[in-house]
Nucleic acid binder design. Structure first.
Lengths: 150, 150
DNA sequence: GTAGGACTTCAAGTACGCTTGAAGTCAAGG
DNA sequence: CCTTGACTTCAAGCGTACTTGAAGTCCTAC
């Protein structure tokens, strides 16, 4: 029933350091201690499972905390997290569109017979507008979780 | 024909600091100087267009440099970059699948009537295996460019 | 001659999700 | 008693793609 951080880490498939980190950022409630060491119950594992699920679904740790906060002090009951999930779904769909663009670009590039680098550049000149070049669109990175790939 | 970094930045839709950064990491050849200041020709803009295209297609700056290196010392001619692009296409398709999973998870979550947080955790217990939980899959992040979202 | 604006360099900061290292503590086993 | 192993804390590091700030230089215009 009760376990040390090592056991919990093993069962959750995480590193112990990750669990400490989750605690530090408020994703996991501070567990009981036995002579300094953390002692976790089964609900800690449940929590980690929910976190894993949310991560899989595309939520950042910060967002997951908001999700959890939404559970606690809620209006009707489960309205807040539903809002967040819906918003995330929109983000994910936008991301899917983005991925689709990538696929098209890659296939297009593979079809073109570019051999020389700077020739390609000249090629792009003609249709630079399509890439938003010169448009100086301001970096609004509202899609928090996709940072690595914008 | 010749321009300062400010003009180039404006035409490319980038910040001047970004251009300096590209030069620093070897994406842009060091331009000529006039009393200390960088002086760029039109090909610099071409280069930036190619870089923008590659970024759009999902390549990291490091990968773009490899792409460029491939152009220089090549075997048949344009074989190396084609290899990289093909590999990237595979990565992107994997990513698309990942996004699809996210969509499914989100929709599933929205369908479920979870009201209490820890109840959800118990729910997940039953099918934890599906998430790879407890499997301790080692973080092999070969999909360099998608880091922000794993 | 001097103010302004655009440029220069270099170091450090940003966000995210952890990991790693150093130094110390604790209980059990030989 | 002393080693071993698992734990503790705290600080710093990693990787990506830049941005920001400080301090200095340079040309032009007034």
């Amino acid at each position: 029933m009760e376990m040390t951080i090592g056991k919990l880490a093993e069962r959750a498939g995480l590193a112990a350091s990750a669990i400490r980190y989750y605690e530090e950022v408020g994703l996991l409630p501070p567990p009981a201690r036995a002579s300094g060491r953390r002692v976790f119950g089964e609900q800690a594992l449940d929590r980690l499972l929910v976190i894993a699920f949310a991560k899989e679904a595309g939520f950042s740790l910060r967002e997951i905390r908001q999700l959890f906060d939404g559970f606690a002090s809620d209006t009707p009951a489960g309205t807040r997290w539903r809002k967040l999930a819906t918003a995330k779904l929109v983000e994910v769909e936008a991301l899917a569109a983005r991925i689709d663009t990538m696929k098209h670009l890659l296939r297009e590039a593979l079809r073109c017979g570019c051999v020389e680098l700077d020739a390609c550049g000249k090629l792009f000149r003609a249709r630079a507008g399509r890439l938003g070049l010169g448009a100086r669109r301001k970096q609004r990175r509202s899609v928090e979780f996709a940072k690595g790939m914008l």
